[in-house]
Structure formats: structure tokens, C-alpha cells
Design a protein around this nucleic acid. Structure first.
Length: 215
DNA sequence: TAGGCCATCTGGTCCT
DNA sequence: AGGACCAGATGGCCTA
């Protein structure tokens, strides 16, 4: 039940989910909000070596070394480790389930046919990225009534370019109606080698690009 | 059978 | 201390 691609600008939320994306607020950490998630997080400012120079660091260090904690037997420690690991596994599983729920919610608002093969995770992200870009371009074109300069090349560098080499073609974007039609997955259905079964709209440019151009 | 996708486990790092 | 986040490893399932 995908909403109309060009429907109301309000974000449609998955039915059983209260928040637009479940767990989003939980996931909005320092990385999500401000800085992009780095492959390796930067080391903390106050390392053990710098403990003396950092207020509170010595206290933290003492706590980390378990200065006050009661000595435990090897068995108890082992049991505690297993228990903690099990709980961490549960949390991690739940976290991934939440992530998948958000991904499903995203799939739900993307214009695909109900009987389409489920988009993979990476396909969902790339498709959403380009879909948003295409909608943005549509709005921009509508705003400028085709008087403005050519729209910039699709910002698809990282997620896959829809054909950045011919960005000028985007100046002749279809009307919203025809775009809605172009969003039909059928447009590039047979041209999507990477995806099993039916496909989803690739580039919102009917007939010129295949889905894989976006991935 | 190889390759892609996925779920899960795991240990490390950072944050509260 | 415990939770959140992340990335690597592993094994199962499916398809070409």
C-alpha cells in the first residue's frame, strides 16, 4: 500500500509503528545526529596515559579497574560474563530488528508494486536516496517553472549515480503525472539483472535508465 | 556449486 | 556498570 509517490509531503508511517521509524530516537546518538558514523571511532580525549591531566579521569580509571569491587571467583566471573553476553546478544538482536523494522517502513513508502520482490537493504537505501532526490528535483522544477538553471547532477555519488553524465536530461523531467507512472516498477522490470523477480523503479526516468544505474 | 543476502554472535569502543 | 553502536566472522538459505 505505497502512498502516491507525489502525494502529500507528510511522511507516511508504517501502520503498526507509532514512530516514523521505530527506535529512531534511541538511535540518534552523537554519530547519527552530528557526525557521520566513522569506521573507527576516535579515541577518547582522556586516555589512561593522560589520566593525570584530565579531571575525573583518575576516578574513572579506578572504577574501571574495579578498585572497590569484591573479588569474585572464576566461576562467578564466568557466569557473569556469559550472562552479560547473553543480554548483550538479546539487545543486539532487538536493535537489528528495530533497524529492519525501520527499513521495512522505508520500503513501505517507496513506490513499488505489492507483489514486487522485496528490496534488499542496500537497494532500499539507494532507491530511497534517489527517490528523494527525484522528488526534490520535481519540486524544484515546479517552483522555478522550468526557468531556472539545469538541476545539478544527482547526488548519488556514494549511493550510486542514476547517470550523472547526462544530468541535463533532468531538465526535461516528466510531469508529476507521468512521473508517477514512471515510478511504476514495471518500467524497468526486465532490466534489473541484480534483482530476482519484479523490479522497482530505478531512476524515475522512464525508459532511459535501468534500476542498476541507481544501485 | 559459487555468490549474494541475511541473521546472529562476538568483542571493541564510546557514552551515560 | 551497563547500554548503544559498530564491524568482523560465521553459517544458513536461496538463486543462477
Amino acid at each position: 500500500m505505497a502512498p502516491h509517490p507525489l502525494g502529500a509531503p507528510t511522511i507516511q508511517v508504517a501502520h503498526e509503528i507509532q514512530q516514523p521509524f521505530p527506535g529512531v530516537s534511541d538511535n540518534v546518538g552523537p554519530c547519527a545526529a552530528s557526525a557521520p558514523p566513522s569506521p573507527t571511532r576516535m579515541p577518547r580525549n582522556c586516555s589512561e596515559a593522560e589520566a593525570g591531566a584530565c579531571p575525573g579521569a583518575a576516578k574513572k580509571l579506578r572504577a574501571r579497574r574495579g578498585g572497590r569491587s569484591r573479588p569474585k571467583s572464576e566461576l562467578a566471573l564466568s557466569k557473569q560474563r556469559r550472562s552479560r553476553r547473553k543480554k548483550a546478544n538479546d539487545r543486539e538482536r532487538n536493535r537489528m530488528h528495530n533497524l529492519n523494522s525501520a527499513l521495512d517502513a522505508l520500503r513501505g513508502v517507496l513506490p513499488t508494486f505489492p507483489d514486487d520482490a522485496k528490496l534488499t537493504k542496500i537497494e532500499t537505501l539507494r532507491f530511497a536516496h534517489n527517490y528523494i532526490w527525484a522528488l526534490t528535483q520535481t519540486l524544484r522544477i515546479a517552483d522555478h517553472s522550468f526557468y531556472g538553471p539545469d538541476p545539478p547532477a544527482p547526488p548519488c555519488g556514494e549511493l550510486g549515480s542514476p547517470d550523472s553524465g547526462s544530468s541535463g536530461d533532468w531538465g526535461s523531467l516528466y510531469s508529476p503525472v507521468s512521473q508517477a507512472g514512471s515510478l511504476s516498477p514495471a518500467a524497468s522490470l526486465e532490466e534489473r539483472p541484480g534483482l530476482r523477480g519484479p523490479t522497482s523503479p530505478a531512476c524515475l526516468r522512464p525508459g532511459t535508465l535501468v534500476f542498476s544505474d541507481f544501485l
